[in-house]
């Protein structure tokens, strides 16, 4: 497996990262090395193994006491949340225009 410059650019775009030319080259080499290492998992036969999607979960048929009822509760935090925003005009977060007319 060899990671190309194009792979790095594609992944950076998916991840919303604008990398510098130095970073592109650095991460290309490092991702290449790390992915070569994690490739050792291919040695294992996992055809009949279930993925561990959840750490702890109730067995089928058991109750899920962790789950709470889906009921409305008051949530009066809009001001506190908007106070942290880089640019807000209550009750909105303001961002650059996304739709051109």
């Amino acid at each position: 497996m060899t990671i190309s410059r194009e792979d790095v650019l594609r992944v950076a775009d998916l991840a919303h990262l604008e990398l510098t030319p130095e970073e592109i080259e650095l991460y290309r080499g490092q991702l290449d090395e790390i992915l070569a290492y994690v490739g050792k998992l291919e040695k294992l036969d996992v055809a009949n193994v279930e993925p561990m999607a959840q750490v702890l979960f109730a067995a089928p048929g058991e109750d899920h006491p962790e789950l709470r009822d889906d009921t409305l509760v008051a949530c009066d935090i809009a001001d506190a949340v908007l106070a942290q925003a880089p640019d807000a005009a209550k009750p909105f977060f303001r961002v650059p225009r996304v739709i051109e007319r």
Binding site: H16, L17, E18, L19, V81, Q84, A85, P86, D87, P96
Partner: peptide
């Protein structure tokens, strides 16, 4: 850069995301 933390201002939303995260 939308709801909290650092925002690097930019003319487009997508560019704002990318520059902020970079």
């Amino acid at each position: 850069g939308v709801r909290y933390g650092l925002r690097v201002p930019s003319s487009s939303l997508r560019e704002m995301y990318k520059k902020t995260r970079e």
